[in-house]
Each structure stands twice: as C-alpha cells, then as structure tokens.
Write a protein that binds this DNA or RNA. Structure first.
Lengths: 218, 218
DNA sequence: GTGACCCTTCAGCTATTCCTCAGCCTCCTG
DNA sequence: CAGGAGGCTGAGGAATAGCTGAAGGGTCAC
C-alpha cells in the first residue's frame, strides 16, 4: 500500500511498483490508510510521514503491516527509528530504484526465515543486493552509490532495452532537473569498472537506449 | 483515441491506425478528450501535449487509459516520464511506424500478463521488436534505426506490395521533404545486410513498388 | 578545516547515420 | 536493337548521437 497525499508521488510509486509485479493499493491520508489497511491487510506500507490529517507515526502504530517511511531529507533519523515504529525509511526526493530496494529489504527482513538469494547474475557479472557488492569474473569491483543503483537497474532488467529517459526516471531522484547526459557519464563509468573484459555486456542502441545482455552467440 | 488540435495530424494518425485494425476515436481539444474518454473508455490515448485549452498533462490525469504523449522535439523530455503520468512519448515530427511501435509497446506493458510474441518471421528472417534484434538464417544482423524501421514495415506487411510513396509515408517522418530516392538507398542497404543469401525476400516490382515475401516454391 | 570521494556539467572528439547525387545497369517498348 | 524510364549502389558531406576526460562544486568523515 502506498500512502501519500501528493497524487503525483502516489501515482509514480504505484505505477512503478505495479510494473515490478506488486499488487498496489493507495491512500491519500491517514484515516483512509488505516481503513484500507484493516480491510486489505497489505504486506507492507509505504507511508509518507507528513500527512494532512494524522501524523505518519500515528498511522504506523495503528497498522499491523511493516512500514517504510517517506520523509523529508532534514528529518532526523532518530525520530524514525527511535520511536520503535517503522522498519526503514527513504528520504524525499527519492529514486524508484532506492524505494524498491528498501521495500525488498524490509520484506526480506520481516518475512524472516525465507532468505531469498538477493543475488543477481548476468554472464560472469554478479551483484549482491544485501552486501552491496559486485564481482566481474570473480573479481570484486567497487562502485559508488549511483553506479551501484544503475548497475542494479540494468541487471534486474537484463535483456530489456532501456531508454535514457527510463534510466533517469528509475535511478535518479524524481526531482532531478538535469538532462540525460549524466546517464552517458555513468554508463561510461560502469563500462570502465565492470565491463572492461570480454564479453561486453552493456550495449548501446543508438538513439534508442542501452541494454545489458550477453551478446547473441555468433 | 487520438487527441490533437491539428486536423492533418489527427487524420493522419487516425487513418493509419484504422488501417492497422485499430478502432479509433478522435478529439480536437482537452475537454472533448476527457468527455469522449469517459463515454467510450478507450484502451489507449495518443495525446498531444500542446492543446489549445487544457494542458496535455492535465488531460492525462483525468483519463483512466494509458497515455502516449506527442511532444515537440525540443520540449524538455525529462518531465514526461517523471511525473508518473503518461506511459511513453513520441516527439514530433514522427513516423507512423514509430507511433505504432510505441502504441503496441504501451499496450503490451499495461496489459501485462499477455506477452505477445512481438517477434516477426518471414522464411529464415526474424525480427524481435522489443530487443530490436534481427537474424537472417540464425545469424544476427546489425541495423541502423531507419533500416530497422523499414524492415519492420516490410515484415509486418509481408506479401503485400508497398509503393515507395507508402513506404515514405510510414517509415519517414511526416515532414520529410526529400524524394523517394532514399527508399531505394535503404532498400539497397537492407538487401546487402539481410537479403544477401538465398532465397531473396525483397523483390522489386518495377514502377509499382517492393514486396517482401518468399518466392513461390519452384 | 581538510581531504577524499562523489555528482554533474561540459566540450572536444569519434563513430554512426542520414541523405543526396551521379553514373551505371536493367527492363521494357517500339 | 536503340532509347528511355526506372532502379541500383558507391561515394561523400552534413548532421547527430554517444563517449570520455577534465573541472567545479558539494558532501561527508575525520
């Protein structure tokens, strides 16, 4: 369930999560959230701290499901964890990659026992979501946060063509004002760090986008 | 549904989509669009961002259907995706091939589960729309964007005779000023890249046009 | 405060792609 | 068989997209 009073953010999250295969309910304020949560018992709630009626913390207390908070950047962290309420948080403005990563982490944690692999693999390139580690051909690679998010997006969409606009929308914060040139820069960084050896995995499709895949045999 | 205030573009799109088997409604401005959409609940809306009354984004919010935006090339592309509104966009001037490709992609995506093949095949020539890959006799072929569009047009009209004018109208942008000589050039490119081996698939019908098909056995 | 790292922009460079054109070829016709 | 219309293709110039090194500014840890 996604709870935010701003329709644009609510829709953005809902659409992106649905695309990733989640079933999504939404609510625009605290009372609606509590109500919907009672009726539908969601597996997890993405909850804006700042709501028009009820305080986000208040809502969290009344909801049985795990909670991922959305909060302004300047909110002090202790407030979130200190209250013993909420399982993690993401600061606004966020990137979709980040929110999804946190969601999966919380689900993994709260569901306990079942510890899914959380490891992506394409050819001899491996990425561990939890440990935030990457190997190419068994050799560890150090990536900056953005590089990691970008590679993660590529790997979880391996074989699918991604336009620069799509990449920008998923990997960068939703309020990013710049142009798609950054994507080129970061692809260049990634290529240098993880795509130096054969076979090349990140391919450019001119005027279309990029795709991460093993080159077709032949 | 097609929404654009310019009659020429509206009619161009409507005619081309009808020919491809879609059922098409049109609207000339924002309010009409919202109204028609409510009455008819279209499966998808092709929507010009620049409308005389309502802003295209505003219209999109009030419409339940998936939206494919039409936008000027120089418009800041960033804001299209990012607002969580609209599912894809095409810049003006566009080619009909491109619009139809995007439409199919959006429908494929929003309808989810049903993942149609999206793969065309004629003899030993194969084309994957999503991956943008082409094989001839199992061997991958690299095509430029225009070559790919042209081949796609040929393959989705296999067996049908296409005049150079038709090809120009579908594969090239609607504002293309040049003459049909380009088509000859690109057919030549295609022949070299994908039609070198037997059997020849692209046939010239002198002073009529071209046709892609397997020669009748014998 | 300082240094390390990170993010973003930018500009020069390279590679690719697009389109035109001219010369040659092919087919049809008379 | 000659002539002409239509078609083919190689060459080349212009435009465009993409790559990457460098630089500026920001943030964070120490």
């Amino acid at each position: 369930m996604v709870v935010d009073d701003e329709p644009s953010i609510r829709d953005l999250l809902a659409a992106s999560l649905r695309f990733s295969g989640f079933e999504v309910l939404t609510a625009a304020d605290g009372y609606e959230a509590v109500e919907v949560a009672e009726r539908a018992s969601p597996d997890l709630v993405v909850l804006d701290v700042m709501l028009p009626d009820l305080d986000g913390f208040e809502v969290a207390k009344r909801i049985a499901a795990p909670v991922l908070f959305l909060t302004a950047r300047d909110a002090t962290e202790d407030k979130i964890f200190g209250l013993g309420v909420g399982d993690d948080y993401v600061t606004k403005p966020f990137s979709l990659e980040e929110v999804q990563a946190r969601i999966r982490a919380v689900l993994r944690r709260t569901r306990g026992e079942s510890a899914p692999a959380s490891r992506l693999r394409v050819a001899d390139l491996e990425l561990d979501e939890e440990a935030r580690e990457v190997w190419r051909g068994g050799r560890p690679v150090r990536l900056s946060p953005t590089e990691f998010k970008l590679l993660h997006y590529f790997m979880s969409n391996a074989g699918r063509v991604l336009s620069k606009a799509q990449i920008l929308d998923h990997v960068w914060n939703y309020d990013f004002g710049g142009d798609a040139g950054v994507v080129e820069s970061y692809v260049s960084y990634l290529r240098r760090k993880v795509d130096a050896g054969e076979p090349r995995l990140i391919h450019t499709l001119r005027s279309v986008g990029y795709v991460l895949r093993e080159p077709p045999a032949g």
